[in-house]
């Protein structure tokens, strides 16, 4: 094992991690998703702090492995990847660029979180999500859950396409 101290700056390591993509949404990298929270050079080496998007998200394990692979490939040694729960991940941490890429990919991006509506009020109320393909507002929620925990399923009555929406949390 290579035990020499890393000579990379945090900025360089940030850019390496921009090469790591979300296995479920390959158009997004983990930096623009807001998964990587901090990179510190500590006395035992580089510490990368990540935060999980969804607590049961199976992609998190894959992402952690990808980070290990990437840093090893770049010769960043020694390093540690730590999961940090002190702040709660929110879709507001996604960059505008990431949201644009999502839409292009056919996933309706999350809006601004703003005030969380009281889930106990408005029994039959659902939010209107614009269709990522044709921007129509004539869409309908099909299911609160899609192919992954972070997405819900909608149907567009204008272009008659089903689409996924990245939930705003």
């Amino acid at each position: 094992m290579n035990t020499t101290e890393t000579t990379y700056t945090p900025e360089q390591i940030w850019s390496f991690l921009e090469e790591v993509t979300d296995p479920e949404i390959p158009v997004l990298n983990i930096v623009e998703m807001g998964i990587v929270r901090r990179i510190d050079l500590e006395k035992d080496g580089v510490v990368v702090r990540i935060t999980p998007t969804y607590s049961g998200c199976p992609a998190m394990h894959a992402i952690e492995m990808e980070i290990h692979n990437k840093l090893r490939e770049k010769g960043v040694e020694p390093f540690q990847v730590k999961t940090d729960y002190s702040e709660t991940w929110t879709t507001d941490w996604m960059t505008e660029e990431a949201k644009r890429k999502l839409k292009e990919y056919g996933i309706a991006p999350p809006g601004k979180k703003g005030e969380e509506d009281d889930v106990l009020k408005g029994l039959r109320k659902t939010k209107i999500i614009p269709c990522p393909y044709c921007d129509s507002l004539e869409t309908e929620l099909q299911s609160e859950f899609g192919s992954t925990a972070c997405k819900s399923q909608y149907y567009c009555h204008s272009c008659e396409e089903p689409f996924e929406h990245f939930k705003c949390i």
């Binding site: 969804y54 607590s55 049961g56 998200c57 859950f145 192919s147 925990a149």
Partner: peptide
Amino acid sequence: DLALANIALDMIGH
């Protein structure tokens, strides 16, 4: 099917 599996995953994640 997907919804219940997703909620199951959330529960096990919690």
